[in-house]
Design a protein around this nucleic acid. Structure first.
Lengths: 243, 243
DNA sequence: CCGCCCTGTCTAGATAACTAGACATTTGTG
DNA sequence: CACAAATGTCTAGTTATCTAGACAGGGCGG
């Protein structure tokens, strides 16, 4: 069954918490359903009731369960399907999904292109790029933490425009890019580094989806290279075949 | 910098190990490069040298570093880019990547379609599907653990053919599906359940890429629904724009 | 309203994880 | 070869985590 490994670097309340969270997320425990009692869970995992209580407390803090004295603990969950295609746009996505989207600007900078970025954008390594960092939320939850790079030579006024419009699509539009499409996407599952964990307000032990992408204009010239870190827990990327 | 959280459920050697693994995977520490000495790392994280040594031992076991007495520890790493497109085929992928691919058959079964599977394949919920479980390796490392569902009515002899050919493409070919393409892909980052962790020989604390997909024949009729769990650590999914 | 089952809170003790320090062993260098 | 700097291996003490048990208090059905 659900095996607990003692002495493997993770506190066992933390392992139990992860197992229960997994069962909730993959739907083995349904929304609103009552968890087994602390006593029963203690028996199932062969640990003390106090240890189970610690695990459940952690689930409460992640908002995965709610617990009522004298009654029990109950599942409280939802996920978000995030479509990715050639024509992926965050704002549009969120609007389609009928959730309240909110983009928070963190910072921007002009810097010489890091090697990977230069390569992605087809720039010389001494050229400047604008780096823009943002966090997006939906219904109050953090959806992603994103770092975007734009060629500075082509879009000299980008930072000001971006700060005003807070939208990649509209910013590029105003700067003469009438349309763009996603040319490249790479997805991996990682644990967040310290900065990312802090910004996304999640523990370093919860995985994120780490997505690198390149958007290009309709002539195929790259206009943006981005690194987007999604909350792996409740965001799922959906890749549709083109019609 | 790299923040260690004490008393948050993860042993601190385990946190340090995760941080260093992250720096290796995202290339801040390059292949072959020497790690800082245990003494220096102990200073950086403000912990005892023994704790750092435990962290490094864990990295050795994951084959991320190699350590030599009197010299130091050195990065030992590689990743695998796994392309996903409308025409994704595992065997072909691996062959293109120039790695030795190996598919191990685990089990198959005929069962009534679980609700999600029935929906994905466009079947009635009382119809039968074949479920096939496999593990694939490349150069000896586990790449993914996969569960595939096929409509039993359409492919009555599938299990026997599959066991013989050990390839989705060739099996469907022999059963009259000359070509197929990927219609739908959903990707999320998760921690593995106990069974998955065991089969993939990885700890339950290391994330996996959890990919659900539907393949359809050229008339658009679904022929396969699959759940593939990739080693999130060293496999990266690459999504290319179609030419 | 009583009994049963649940969560909540406390205390005390056992076990695992981390720290501190001493010293051995290997490697590379002057 | 002597020395510095790294890993490897002990021992002992401290702190965090887990176990064990007792009891208080809310919820619910007979």
């Amino acid at each position: 069954m659900s095996e607990i490994e003692r002495g493997r670097g993770a506190a066992i309340w933390s392992q139990i918490s992860a197992i229960l969270a997994g069962e909730i997320i993959r739907g083995q425990l349904r929304q609103g359903e009552q968890l087994p009692s602390a006593q029963e869970l203690a028996a199932r995992f062969d640990v003390n009731r106090h240890t189970v209580r610690r695990a459940i407390a952690a689930l409460e803090q992640r908002n995965l369960v709610r617990t009522e004295q004298g009654r029990g603990s109950f599942v409280q969950e939802q996920t978000l399907d995030y479509p990715i295609s050639r024509r992926t746009r965050f704002t549009q996505n969120m609007h389609n999904l009928n959730v309240e989207a909110d983009l928070e600007f963190l910072e921007d900078a002009r810097e010489t292109a890091p090697p990977k970025v230069a390569q992605a954008l087809g720039l010389d390594r001494h050229e400047y790029v604008y780096r823009v960092e943002t966090i997006s939320r939906a219904d109050g939850h953090i959806v992603d933490y994103s770092t975007a790079y734009f060629p500075a030579a082509r879009f000299p006024s980008l930072p000001a425009v971006y700060r005003r419009l807070l939208s990649v699509t509209r910013t590029l539009n105003e700067l003469g890019v009438t349309d763009y499409e996603r040319r490249f996407t790479r997805v991996s599952a990682r644990l967040p580094d310290a900065t990312t964990a802090r910004l996304m307000k999640q523990p370093a032990s919860r995985p994120i989806l780490y997505v690198q992408s390149i958007n290009a204009d309709l002539r195929g010239v790259p206009v943006q290279y981005g690194i987007t870190r999604f909350s792996g827990d409740w965001v799922q990327l959906v890749l549709m075949a083109e019609p």
